[in-house]
Computed example of a mutant assay.
Amino acid sequence: MQFFRHLKPVKAMTFDLDDTLYDNRPVILQVEAQMVQWLHATHPVSATRSFDWWRDIKRDLAKQDNWLPNDVTLWRFKQIEYGLGLLGYTSQQAKLAAEQAIEKVLSLRSDFTVPDQTHRVMRELAQQLPLIAITNGNVDVEKIGLADYFTLVLKAGPDGYAKPHGQLFDKAQQHLGLPAQHILHVGDHLISDVMGAKQSGLQACWFNDQQVDIYHSHRARLLPDVEITALPQLLTLID
């Protein structure tokens, strides 16, 4: 644990989910691989175009509608719908296929086990402080067993602009009814989490389990208030 500023008393915490409360990297790799297999098997015409072609569609859609990167589920839906339309599907066929694909994505997306250590830490924290989840992703906190720890779950897209935009941080602060400086946001991303929280007036705890040197990271914009390398260290901040 490393402190960069003197922490004000922590009366509530907000949490990033992906890569903070669990390692999301292998989950996403598996989801992407299984979705390619599913799409090719269910809609063989999709296999006639390369990964780069599909990636370019996603990028071009974001240029046409800059809201899409704020909602990863909608963005993927539009990518599949538009791509299959280009490959000859009618608008109705493409929409139905995209809906089925998203159903599959969301099922795979939340099909993993959260570490026991995370449950132990979150259970103890939730007994002492109100906790809120703030995520740019689309994991189902009910399915992965984290829902009971949070008084509120805020998701980019349905609930507002993606972090580091301040909208979700502001909603969390309003829900808690606490001064922002007494809320500690915990997250792994130096831009989305650390910079986003600090610019919204919250204190920021950087979860750095990858041994990144903040002074040599291209993502570093603002120093966090505190850096931790393991979740149990959070418990010492509320003693």
Rank of each mutant, 00 (worst) to 15 (best):
D71G: 02
A97F: 02
R59Q: 13
W67I: 07
R76I: 04
G85Y: 15
D56R: 09
Q79I: 01
D52C: 02
W54H: 02
E81N: 13
A97S: 14
A62Q: 14
D56Q: 14
I80Y: 09
W75F: 13
Q64S: 10
D52G: 01
Q79A: 11
F51Y: 10
K95F: 11
I57H: 09
L68Q: 07
D56N: 03
R55E: 14
R55M: 03
L84M: 13
G85S: 15
Y82K: 08
Q92H: 14
D56H: 01
N66S: 14
L61E: 09
K95T: 12
P69T: 08
N66C: 03
D71C: 05
A94I: 01
F51Q: 12
R59P: 03
D60C: 05
W53R: 09
K63Y: 01
W75M: 13
L84H: 10
P69H: 04
D60R: 15
G85T: 15
Q92V: 12
D65W: 11
W67M: 07
F77D: 05
Q64F: 05
D52K: 06
L61D: 09
L86E: 15
T73E: 12
F77S: 05
L87W: 01
W54R: 02
I80V: 15
W53Q: 05
F51T: 13
E81V: 03
L86W: 05
N70W: 12
S91E: 14
Y89I: 02
K95I: 06
D56W: 00
R76S: 04
A94T: 04
Y82M: 04
L61H: 05
T73P: 04
G83C: 06
N70G: 15
W75K: 05
T90K: 07
Y89E: 07
D65H: 08
D56Y: 00
F77H: 15
K78W: 06
W53L: 14
I57R: 11
V72R: 13
K78C: 14
L61C: 08
K78A: 12
G88C: 02
P69Q: 08
I57Q: 15
L74H: 11
Q64Y: 01
G83S: 09
W67G: 06
W54V: 00
L61G: 11
D65K: 03
R49L: 02
E81I: 02
T73R: 09
G88N: 02
Y89H: 12
K58S: 11
Q79F: 01
S91L: 10
Y82Q: 08
R76N: 06
Y82I: 00
Y82G: 00
R76P: 05
Q92E: 15
R76A: 03
A94W: 03
D65E: 11
K58N: 15
Q79M: 13
